[in-house]
């Protein structure tokens, strides 16, 4: 299922932070995990992911380090305490927003 791009991009930072809050990951791994978990709804392009990741690192929300895995050196990302705080805030905002949307949709159904 392909979703509206603008709907996804706004919450992408939250989704990336959520992924690395569970365990440290490298870029390709994030895209792959996101794709699998969203049942192929989120086909995030690497060209979108890396500017977000590097921007989060600049703001101190994530930290990166090099680690060897399967014979290749990969750049892993881990979440910082300020990243965790940001994730909590974004998740709270998202829940409020989705509850509001659900409420409106439920109203429409009951009117119909």
């Amino acid at each position: 299922m392909a979703l509206d791009k603008s709907l996804v991009s706004g919450s992408m930072t939250m989704l990336i932070l959520k992924l690395i809050s569970e365990r440290d990951m490298y870029g390709y791994e994030m895209i792959d995990t996101l794709r699998q978990r969203s049942n192929h709804s989120f086909e995030l392009k690497a060209g979108t992911l890396y500017p977000i990741l590097h921007g989060l690192e600049e703001k101190g929300m994530v930290r990166s380090y090099d680690k060897e895995f399967a014979g290749k050196t990969r750049k892993y990302y881990s979440i910082t305490s300020s990243g965790m705080a940001q994730l909590e805030e974004r998740t709270k905002e998202w829940k409020e927003y989705s509850d509001a949307v659900r409420g409106v949709l439920a109203l429409e159904v009951s009117v119909l």
Partner: peptide
């Protein structure tokens, strides 16, 4: 192809680095 537009990505990375 799955990487996206190199110009756009490069420009965004340039703003950070």
């Amino acid at each position: 192809n799955s990487m996206g537009d190199p110009v756009m990505t490069g420009t965004e990375l340039d703003m950070i680095h």
